[in-house]
């Protein structure tokens, strides 16, 4: 879409007049007919979120200060910050925090670096060819998580799995228990999650790169800019809003996406080396039917994610050219 110019603002070689004009008009158009219209459009999403997310969330906040087994026959007992104190003492909590941070960072090569490279290089080949590759890169997305876990379990198997066979051929004598060795298990979980998500992020980045107006590239090519110059002067700057958005997405969802693989492959082990925020909440909270731990850990991780999101959006605003 040609019109993307307007959104992306002060890029390097961008026509500035278009953006200014749009900005002025938006202001005037907005004043013409405000009042109720936008609220009507927002209503369905807002109502659904209030009923299914905000209401239970507030309840969880409230319950985190009470001692209660959730049964209607008993009444909640106020217990102040006891649940939070208990949370800190629960084995695995600090591991969960650290591992979550490691996963957030560890996933970035799969969710950002590789997809960006793929999307950029996709520009260098024909669209038909790149669509073909992208189709293949997307395929892991459609695979059922249980099946993906099963496949990787067999590949990583210590008793004859493909990876160990390969290593043996390369001269590694002792077979490695990848999923049961604290040195490797977390890396494996990150890899599997990343493998599953690369296609998703490639789709997002690819659309964004394809949406950049070809006019810039033509102009740049006429100025004699080569592929790399175009990449650094046009593609990356114009991609920056998407980059910020996707980085945020990847970081905030690392824990949630790896949850299934932790649950099916390692159950947080060995020695809590793969437990993360989501698995902690699930295993120590929900599964244990402990309302206190479920709610206090949900509150803590919610606030933690919120803090990270705040920092990221602050940094993102500075790095991004997206200034509508």
């Amino acid at each position: 879409m040609k019109s993307d110019v307007l959104t992306y603002g002060p890029g390097l070689a961008l026509p500035r007049s278009g953006r200014n004009r749009a900005a002025v008009k938006t202001k005037r158009g907005a004043l013409a007919r405000v009042c109720w219209q936008p609220y009507v459009y927002l209503l369905p999403a807002l109502v659904l979120m209030c009923v299914w997310i905000y209401y239970p969330l507030l309840r969880t906040f409230y319950l985190s200060f009470f001692n209660w087994n959730m049964l209607p026959t008993t009444t909640p007992q106020f217990c102040g910050l006891d649940n939070f104190a208990k949370l800190l003492r629960t084995p695995g909590f600090s591991n969960a925090v650290v591992n979550t941070l490691v996963m957030m960072v560890g996933l970035l090569p799969f969710s950002i670096v590789l997809p960006v490279l793929v999307s950029i290089f996709a520009k260098s080949i024909t669209k038909r060819a790149s669509a073909f590759y992208r189709g293949m890169i997307f395929v892991p997305m459609i695979l059922a998580p249980v099946a993906a876990a099963a496949v990787f379990r067999w590949i990583l198997h210590p008793a004859g799995g493909l990876l160990n066979q390969l290593l043996e051929r390369m001269g590694v004598e002792e077979s490695i228990s990848f999923l049961n060795d604290p040195r490797y298990a977390l890396g494996c979980i990150i890899f599997i999650t990343g493998w599953k998500m690369t296609g998703f992020f490639t789709l997002l980045f690819y659309s964004a790169v394809q949406n950049i107006d070809d006019g810039y590239y033509q102009a740049a090519a006429m100025d004699g800019a080569g592929f790399w110059q175009q990449t650094f002067r046009i593609t990356l700057p114009l991609l920056s809003p998407t980059l910020v958005f996707n980085t945020m997405l990847s970081i905030l969802f690392a824990s949630s996406w790896s949850f299934t693989y932790v649950d099916t492959l390692t159950q947080g082990g060995p020695l809590n080396s793969t437990i993360n925020a989501y698995y902690f909440m699930w295993d120590k909270g929900f599964r244990t039917s402990s309302s206190g731990l479920t709610s206090s850990s949900a509150v803590v991780f919610f606030l933690g994610f919120g803090l990270i999101a705040l920092v990221l959006s602050h940094v993102g605003q500075k790095l991004s050219y997206y200034d509508n």
Binding site: T26, Y41, P56, L57, L252, T294, A298, F302
Partner: peptide, 30 residues
């Protein structure tokens, strides 16, 4: 709604939507 109009509370609504991202499903499930 969020892109077409400027209206009071726009930022708030955008924020309200974004925040739901941070809510773990374990908190809302039961």
């Amino acid at each position: 709604a969020l892109t077409r109009w400027d209206f009071p509370g726009k930022k708030l609504f955008y924020g309200l939507f974004t925040v739901t991202w941070l809510v773990p499903f374990q908190a809302t499930m039961l």
